[in-house]
Amino acid sequence: MAEIPESLLRRSAEAKAKALGVPVEDVLAEMKGEGPPVKVPQPEAEEKTETVEVSEAPEEPATEPVEEVEPPEDKDAPTPEVEADTDQDVIPEEPKEATYADDPDPDPVPPPAEPAPEQQPVAAAESEETPAAVAIAEKEDEEPPAPPSGNGAGNGKVASVVSARPSVPPAGTPEGVRSQRLLTVVKARAIQNVKAEPTDKVNTWPHLMLMEFGALLLITGILVIMSIVIHSPLLDPANFNATPNPSKAPWYFLGLQELLSYFDPQIAGVMVPTVTGMALFILVPYLDKNPSTTPSDRKFAIALYSMFLAGAATLTIIGVLFRGLGFNWAYPWQDGIFFDDLKDWVHFE
């Protein structure tokens, strides 16, 4: 059997002692096998500190011992703050929650498929002071103790902690009262180090989804109207021998084409800065070391991006509207528009 570090044992004992309301030293002694089973003072039936239930089916290897959250049958409990679906893999700091040691994604804690309305997934280890959340396995007294499975192949770390001390139902526990057994000690830090502060949240349904639905209808409407009014261009069939004058790139590249028209592209006067700029663009989050997101703290970044936007927009508009034959300067109101994408809509000449 794996040696359990003293510190872990101690923490476990503290948690268990707290749950049972007995002295820590006694529990520790019991865990080490040096003392008699701890006598549990008569617990009140109401006070259930249960949290995570071990599926104790013998045929199930203990790799995933913790599976279900056992909901307390408390009809008056507030509506479920189903934090099941939080945004990040973090156990919120505020409510100390029991969690699973080897489950990277504590996402769903919904009750089994068809929920009984009163049941609520509540994770509640009463361990406010302990630095770590403690998952406590619970045993019905009438059930036999979990089969020792510490040596079985494939048992994870958790399993070995679990089986380290097959708990003996404390003597003197009244019929029907559940006793607690330490399952595992989970470090407070989750796999992702995101701080979860309590935030003001609203339900996605209906608030966000109605908004999205509205946006979706709006864009569909705009698109359908556009598609009825403006026809896609179809010019003469492709002809390798007839270069149109002017030849323009698709509009989103026209800014670049405009830029290139100022220089001899072969001497790399434009492309080198452009490509460098694009590389820097990917790296923006790593270059901008300013942690603030407040606009007034980010004047430089905002100014830079605005210049980029204005420049790109200006160049693109020039390329679309103000470039005519031979890609020379042209005034749309004098010389017409040379932009074939909209040819079937705007009849110019």
């Binding site: 189903v82 099941a84 945004d87 935030t199 609203v202 608030h207």
Partner: peptide, 9 residues
Amino acid sequence: PVKVKRHAV
């Protein structure tokens, strides 16, 4: 997610 920050709505 089940819930979103109020301002995100």
